[in-house]
Design a protein around this nucleic acid. Structure first.
Length: 341
DNA sequence: CGAACCCA
DNA sequence: TGGGTTCGG
């Protein structure tokens, strides 16, 4: 879900090769969630191994990582830690939405309405510990660094970008901007075809770059005001924001008022100031290492094919590409060291 | 979502 | 060759 500031944010389309030789911190939860919700059969059932364990995210991660690595992009995945206490309400709300969607999924299946079934199946997507652990395992086998955030992954990714350890944070949500990421990349995919939530319509989605400095300049605010703006329109910590206030009004308010939250704190159940403080100073850690290593081919074969019933032919194909991609990555790193780009 | 397949 | 369709697990 994330903070609802998308329509205010200036962006520029980029090509994947604009990221050549660059390190990118991916919000792991965001990526995994996307794979789990989209990689499904026609009736909405996710891909599963013979023991019924979900594998959609493994398929998505495996092939997308190869593609991005072939483009000389150095990926690191940042996993969520403990959510802040004031996220409870949103977590609860999401659970209710999922459970309701799950029921409608089964109802649609009984009626034989596949399209409807898939729609609700996607909405019923849930990410559990086992899925996260499998994702971490695959990434490690692929030689991709895994970073464990103390709290929100977006915050940790933003911190790494702000320190210059990675070029950008990658997520579909805009939260990392509020957390202070100087750059955010969205739609980092190869095919760039995405189904619109409602209809059976596909739109071209190209990778895009959002530069925090340009956002602030365009809106005429500083980061603190941007955070307040986000809180007025709604974040994961106060879903829905303030009733009756959309992006435009919110922008006007934060530019006009010295303390825009004051007036709305009264009508809000959650502590808006705590949310603001969290965005400005989130828990982050320096205890991580961005070290890219050789993929463990045997390990990947065992994990994907033996344990999770992936086709050996397909995975071996992938491994061949992966090996070459690692070389591309090394070359890309060298070129960036010697300042050729 | 992305790979593989298919047919013009 | 490439755009649409189906499969993958």
């Amino acid at each position: 879900m994330g903070v609802q500031i998308g329509e205010l944010v200036p962006r520029k389309e980029i090509e994947l090769n604009n990221l050549y030789g660059r390190k990118v911190a991916v919000d792991a939860f965001n990526a995994i969630y996307q794979f789990l919700s989209t990689i499904r059969q026609r009736d909405g059932t996710p891909l599963m191994d013979s023991k019924g364990r979900i594998t959609s995210h493994l398929s998505g991660l495996f092939y997308r990582n190869i593609n991005l690595m072939e483009n000389g992009i150095k990926l690191a995945y940042v996993f969520d830690g403990k959510p802040p206490a004031f996220k409870k309400r949103e977590i609860e709300k999401r659970r209710e939405v999922r459970e309701e969607a799950e029921e409608k999924w089964y109802e649609a299946l009984e009626k034989g309405d596949l399209e409807e079934a898939k729609k609700y199946a996607m909405r019923a997507t849930r990410v559990n510990e086992a899925l996260i652990n499998d994702a971490k395992k695959l990434l490690e086998l692929m030689g991709i660094p895994v970073v464990q955030a103390p709290s929100e992954g977006e915050a940790q990714a933003a911190y790494m970008a702000a320190r210059g350890e990675v070029y950008a944070s990658a997520s579909q949500d805009y939260d990392s901007l509020l957390f202070g990421a100087p750059r955010l990349v969205r739609n980092v995919t190869i095919t760039g075809r995405r189904k619109l939530p409602g209809k059976n319509v596909y739109v071209e989605v190209r990778p895009e770059l959002i530069v925090l400095e340009e956002v602030l300049k365009e809106l005429g605010v500083d980061r603190e005001k941007l955070v307040e703006l986000g809180i007025l329109v709604g974040t994961d910590y106060n879903p829905g924001g303030i009733k009756g206030i959309g992006p435009k009004k919110a922008l006007a308010i934060v530019k006009r008022e010295k303390d825009p939250l004051k007036k709305y704190q009264r009508e809000s159940e959650v502590d808006l100031y705590a949310i603001k403080e969290f965005f400005l100073n989130p828990p982050v850690t320096d205890e991580y290492e961005l070290r890219w290593s050789e993929p463990d081919e045997e390990g990947i074969l065992r994990f994907l094919c033996d344990e999770h019933d992936f086709s050996e032919e397909r995975v071996k194909n992938g491994l061949e590409r992966l090996k070459k991609a690692v070389k591309v990555g090394k070359q890309a790193t060298l070129e960036s060291w010697f300042g050729r780009r």
